Amino acid sequence: MQDEVRSADVFYEAPTGAGTVRLLARRLTTSWPDLTGQTLLGLGYTTPFLPLWERQTAFAVAARLDPPPAHPNSRSPIPECLVDGAKLPFPDLCFDRILMVHALETTQASRDLLRAVWKVLRDDGKLILIVPNRRGIWAHSDTTPFGQGTPFSQRQLREHLRQSMFHVETCETALYPPPFSPLHRASRVSDVIERAGRAVLPACGGVVVAEAVKDMWGGLPLPASKSRFRLRRKVMEAV
């Protein structure tokens, strides 16, 4: 997974990475337009995205699942840390929002990771997951971090979240321009492709973007039903 970390750092410093951030930022700020006074956790590789809410949040931190590169990006205004995905070093119920990018598809223990996320997310908190789309071209390009790990379809991601006690509120695809630098340098062209892709091929974007909330009732046992039984012996009234 070290290669995935290095590729993400290199990718987001290139024009294609900058264009990717610009296109996905619109989806993210539409879902979360105002996080004033809230706590935010970025899990995976979220350094390019967390500054979208830098001036709003009360606290924000970027948590990597792998060691950072030898020369980390010192320009990032968001503090970073290294965590174990199965045991996040944060108190339970401490984050209002959690953003996961380049996390679920690269871990070998996805259920443990989502369970750990469930614990540190507040009961009314929300989670946004961005994963490579199995039907999209980006999942088949090993020159980008979206070509690493295991891609998901929308149905697979919904089921994965459901089994981890999350309720999916929205699930759609994004990032329709192919991963070529010239297209992402021309912002107007990439914007047109993005809008056309959503209208014509809504299931074929490069990534799946899902927003979910905690399913507080998913883990509760079903109420015990009344059972009937028959006595093997007759009960005789004493005289």
Rank of each mutant, 00 (worst) to 15 (best):
T144A: 11
V213T: 12
A86V: 08
A63Y: 01
V83W: 01
D66F: 11
T150H: 12
A196W: 12
S164F: 00
H184Q: 10
T36H: 14
L35F: 10
R22Y: 10
E237N: 13
E54Y: 10
V192Q: 14
T39M: 08
L93V: 10
A212G: 05
G136F: 01
A210L: 11
A25W: 03
G218K: 08
L99S: 03
T36A: 15
T107S: 09
L113C: 12
L23W: 03
F90Q: 07
K234F: 12
V209Y: 00
A18M: 08
R195P: 02
A58S: 15
V192R: 14
T106V: 15
A203S: 10
L24E: 05
E80I: 07
S153I: 06
P202V: 09
V209P: 00
Q108H: 06
A62Y: 11
T20Y: 02
P91Q: 12
L88P: 08
R122E: 03
P51Q: 12
D142V: 04
E237M: 14
V207M: 08
P79T: 09
L104G: 00
D112K: 03
G219S: 15
I78N: 01
L41H: 06
V208M: 06
V83P: 02
F90K: 08
E105M: 05
P182Q: 03
R162Q: 14
L231P: 04
V213E: 12
K126G: 01
I128W: 10
S164Q: 02
L82F: 15
S227M: 06
H71K: 14
R230W: 05
F180W: 14
H167I: 13
P223N: 12
C94S: 15
P68E: 11
R115G: 05
Q148F: 14
V131E: 02
K119S: 06
R195V: 15
L157F: 14
T20I: 00
F152T: 04
S153K: 06
R232H: 13
R195Q: 10
T30R: 15
V239Q: 04
A186L: 15
Y176H: 12
G149T: 06
A238V: 10
E54I: 14
G197F: 05
S74Q: 13
L222W: 01
R22S: 09
S110A: 11
T46E: 12
L50M: 08
E237C: 08
V168I: 07
P72E: 02
T46G: 07
S7R: 15
A8Y: 02
V213I: 14
V189Q: 04
R198H: 13
E169P: 02
A63F: 05
D34Q: 14
L161W: 03
D9V: 15
I193E: 02
E237Y: 09
R185F: 13
G37A: 05
C171H: 08
D84I: 07
G85C: 05
V21Q: 01
A8F: 07
R158I: 08
F11A: 08
S153R: 03
R155T: 13
I128M: 15
T29L: 02
A174H: 09
R135H: 12
F95A: 11
V131Y: 01
P178W: 06
V200G: 04
Q56E: 15
L183M: 11
L23P: 00
Q2G: 09
G125E: 07
T36N: 11
Y176A: 05
Y45E: 04
Q38K: 14
G205S: 00
P223F: 13
H167C: 07
